[in-house]
C-alpha cells in the first residue's frame, strides 16, 4: 500500500470519529454526553494531525506538536465544562441541556 492510500485511510478514520462526535453532540440530551461528543471530535482531529506528521515531511514536527496542544486543551476544556455542569446541577438538579434555556437574548 502506497503512502497516499494509507494517508487517505487515516483521514477517513479521523472523519469517522469526527462524525460520530458530531452525532453524539446532537443526540445526547445529557450535558456530559455532549462533552463525550466533543472529546470524540477532538480525537478525530488528532488522528489527522498525527497522520500528516507521518506522511507529510513538512509537518513532521508540527503535526505532533499540534496534537499535543489539542490533548492539553481538551483536558482543560473537560475540567471547565465539568465545573460548569456541576454548578448547573446545583442550581437545577438536572444536567439535561434542554432545561438550560433561561438566558435569552
Amino acid at each position: 500500500m502506497n503512502p497516499v492510500e494509507q494517508l487517505n485511510l487515516y483521514l477517513a478514520l479521523g472523519a469517522l470519529l469526527f462524525v460520530c462526535g458530531v452525532v453524539c453532540m446532537a443526540t445526547k440530551r445529557n450535558a456530559i454526553g455532549v462533552l463525550i461528543g466533543v472529546e470524540l471530535v477532538l480525537n478525530g482531529a488528532n488522528i489527522n494531525f498525527v497522520a500528516f506528521s507521518r506522511f507529510h515531511p513538512n509537518f513532521q514536527v508540527e503535526g505532533m506538536i499540534f496534537a499535543l496542544f489539542v490533548i492539553v486543551m481538551a483536558a482543560g476544556e473537560a475540567a471547565v465544562a465539568l465545573a460548569i455542569v456541576l454548578n448547573f446541577y446545583n442550581n437545577h438538579t438536572t444536567v439535561d441541556v434542554d432545561t438550560a434555556e433561561e438566558l435569552k437574548g
Binding site: 503512502p3 497516499v4 494509507q6 494517508l7 487517505n8 483521514l11 477517513a12 472523519a15 500528516f52 506528521s53 507521518r54 506522511f55 507529510h56 515531511p57 513532521q60
Partner: peptide
C-alpha cells in the same frame, strides 16, 4: 479528503 493531499513520501 480522498486523494486531495499528495503525500510525496512517508517520512
Amino acid at each position: 479528503t480522498w486523494g486531495h493531499f499528495s503525500a510525496p513520501q512517508a517520512t
